[in-house]
Amino acid sequence: MEKFLWKLSFLGLFVLYLMATPLHASSGDNDNDGIFDSLENQIMDKYAPQLILHPDEDYAISSVNWYLERVAMRFHHRGCLDEQILNSGDVNQSSLLLQQNYLKGNFCIDNNTIVYSTDARDTYKDGGFFLQPSNENEFDQLVYKGDSNQANWRIYAHIQQSTTLDNGYDIQYWFFYPFNEAPSVAGVKLNHEGDWEHITVTVDNSLNFHNAYYASHNDEGKRYSASELTFANPNGIYAASNEKLTGNFTHPVIYSAKGTHASYPTAGTQDRGILPTDYTGNGQVWNSVTKVINVGEKEAPLNGQTFIQYGGLWGEIGNTSISTGPKGPAFQSAWFNE
């Protein structure tokens, strides 16, 4: 009898241990965010979006690797000449993280302040690393157009506990355009190299769709309910009203605005008040199902996507912060807040 009671006590302690052990103690959570990787991948695939470009879009998306193969890494100094750090062909997801360089002070002499390519900083204002395609023989103009082979396009997913819904999950889908084309406003140039865009799908703890946030520039993004969105199946067939989020009709449709690549749920003229109007339309269609990569967390990237640890800019330094290339996803406020 005593042996039986001892076994019960041991079993009880073991159960308490399992209940107290966080999910990331399991080898199934390799990015240590408290969510099993298999669950992240399940949600990620279920809601992978369909992207529709404007019929007159000149600047398509690309994968990160496609872009890195075509750019050099440079270092920006305020008031001094920029430096070449890595030549085109030498930039990849590994070399991207291994660079360091001195800032320059008076008379453009090194001032013993070391900047690492994984540092978070205001590169436009304070100097730092950035990526840039060569403008020799207008090679940059070719890179700006993105990858012409749609089969190579990729979307990068970041899954986390929801910041807006208790016990829910947020799935951020990030996509990269090598160039952002936009009209100038009051003489201020809005064009810039590099363009990270995203939407965030929020689901409840049963993995049911709750809403989706479609990001846009100048904090103009909006959150939409299922009734306000179009959903497609992996074959690109649109769901009728009574078919939304049933079967395989779970993939939200994104209309990418011409040039600016802001995300909208409909085709047509998108009024932005005093800012230049965006235009979306039924051009090239891309279903991202099977083309989404789970990048994990910045501290623990998944699937070799270490680019999320690069703290520099994706594009050259412009005359203003607006016309300067953006930071990568994990260095933007939206990474944790949408």
Rank of each mutant, 00 (worst) to 15 (best):
E2M: 10
L5S: 12
L5T: 14
L8E: 14
L11H: 08
V15R: 12
Y17Q: 09
G28S: 15
N30P: 13
D33W: 00
D37T: 03
L51N: 01
I52E: 09
I52A: 04
H54G: 03
Y59A: 02
S62Y: 03
V64A: 10
H77T: 02
E83R: 00
E83P: 05
I85N: 00
I85V: 14
G89R: 03
D90V: 08
Q93W: 03
S94E: 14
S95R: 07
L98C: 07
Q99I: 03
Q100G: 10
N112M: 11
T113F: 10
T113C: 05
T113H: 09
T118A: 02
D126F: 08
G127R: 01
L131D: 03
Q132G: 05
N137W: 08
F139V: 07
K145G: 01
D147L: 07
Y156P: 14
Q160P: 04
L165K: 08
L165Q: 09
D166A: 15
D170M: 04
D170A: 06
W174I: 01
F175I: 03
Y177A: 10
P178D: 09
P178N: 01
N180R: 15
A182Y: 06
P183Y: 02
S184W: 02
H192F: 00
E193N: 11
D195K: 03
I199K: 08
I199N: 05
T202F: 07
T202D: 02
S206C: 04
S206M: 12
Y213N: 02
H217I: 09
D219H: 13
E220A: 15
T230H: 14
I237G: 10
K244T: 13
F249R: 04
I254W: 08
T266Y: 13
T269P: 07
T269H: 06
T269S: 14
R272L: 11
R272T: 08
G273Y: 07
D278L: 05
Y279I: 13
T280F: 01
G281S: 06
E299L: 00
Q305Y: 04
Q305T: 10
T306Q: 11
I317M: 03
T320I: 01
T320S: 11
I322T: 12
I322A: 12
T324M: 00
P326V: 00
Q332F: 02
N337P: 10
E338Q: 15
